[in-house]
Design a protein around this nucleic acid. Structure first.
Lengths: 227, 227
DNA sequence: ACCCTGTTCAAACGGACGTTTGAAGGCTAT
DNA sequence: ATAGCCTTCAAACGTCCGTTTGAACAGGGT
């Protein structure tokens, strides 16, 4: 039975990925050095460049490892919804839940890296480094296109430009909710850390986002700009 | 008329602040070196440490310069609302607009640093560096307390915990809207850069946030966690 | 004329960074 | 055994970092 030799203690590559994920979340990309990563992963300093080629390629691998399955789950969920609907328009809130759920599911895995990752991800949308934003954008693009189309079909009456902005708002709310660790505590006053309840959070988010998405249109494009 | 000697070309301190603001926004805090800052500001490398003491103190000064007036404006706007209402409860949307407007106003100043700053600010909420998040939190605390109280009064029927989360969501939407430069373009497909129309953006944000804030409560705290 | 205070300057400090190198191990297949 | 490949390792590479230093320069008050 030599087959189970697949995972000795944990293969060097994934030990590096785990360590990098945790440290990126804690100190950011520029704030995390190769020496910190390799020390935490208990591997030699040169191992990162050997296995990944460069620090930047490691960053990319950290994102791909979890983001690709996550977006695949989003697309699968949308497929399922559309199949069940048999051509009928989808309920906006159902689309929202399909998009939000995969990221919240990662929040639940607690001590596993998923929780770290999802917070890291929430922060990545606003990264200063152009390369990283581009990477994130590229990884999101396919799922984003699908969801944009779904919303357009579900909200045929809404002006496209307004819809784009509302998707932007929804995206921001989600990203920020995932990334921010302190702010709820800041607003709430104290609230120690009862573990995130992902199910309840999904209810709250879905209610908030669905209402925002369906809000009455503002007195619109009329040029009232001239001060 | 020797009085106008007040601004020679621009005092060293504020040249540094301007350069740092622009570069922090472009490359982040860790990604911006003192040498980049002083080169752009056309001052000697040692000038930052002479005038501010350290790089971290410079970061703090960059934030304080604009954030203190901005939060003061928020509090003043709330004061005005409450005076006008003479004790009656405020409309939630009016509170939202009072909070949102001061940051959007900075978006309008275009080539001036305000636009840079507000995007920098949107990113700062999710900074990895603990010190910076604490700084931001401290600078926001007074305004935040006032607005929390105002929302509690305006929405007396809403459970406090739900309100805290909805404030969190609103805050995230605003922060993200300010910070994100590409995402709208990503969703929209192309949309080149017609200049941000801050007034229209305020309408859109206010409509979205007010609807989210007033959304029907989700089937609430019932423990449906056990999967 | 003098010193004093505030500011600018070129140069250097030690340390941390990402990456590269070449040798040493550990395997399996021959 | 031997050859080959994949992986690990300690050490060093050159570069850039934030900060410090001590001298030079300015201007006004006495």
């Amino acid at each position: 039975m030599p087959l189970r030799a697949v995972k000795p203690p944990a293969d060097t590559r994934s030990r590096i990925l785990d360590a990098a994920e945790a440290l990126f979340m804690q100190h950011g990309f520029e704030g995390t050095s190769m020496r910190m990563i390799t020390a935490r992963a208990n591997v030699n300093l040169a191992a990162v460049n050997y296995h990944f080629g460069s620090k930047h390629a490691l960053v990319e691998a950290v994102f791909r490892r979890r983001l690709d399955p996550m977006n695949a789950a989003r697309i699968a969920a949308l497929d399922r919804l559309e199949n069940e609907a048999r051509g009928a328009a989808l309920a906006p809130e159902a689309i929202i839940r399909a998009f939000v759920a995969p990221s919240l599911r990662l929040l639940e895995d607690a001590q596993g890296g998923g929780r770290n990752f999802v917070r890291l991800l929430g922060r990545a949308y606003t990264e200063p480094a152009r390369e990283i934003r581009h990477l994130i954008g590229a990884l999101y693009a396919p799922a984003m296109a699908r969801y944009k189309a779904a919303f357009e079909r579900a909200l045929a009456h809404m002006p496209r430009e307004e819809l784009v902005w509302r998707m932007h708002f929804m995206f921001g709310t989600l990203a920020y909710t995932l990334a921010a660790t302190d702010t709820v505590r800041l607003i709430a006053g104290c609230k120690p850390e009862d573990r995130y309840n992902a199910q309840l959070l999904e209810e709250r988010l879905a209610a908030f986002l669905a209402a925002g998405l369906l809000a009455p249109l503002p007195r619109s494009c009329a040029i009232e700009e001239a001060a």
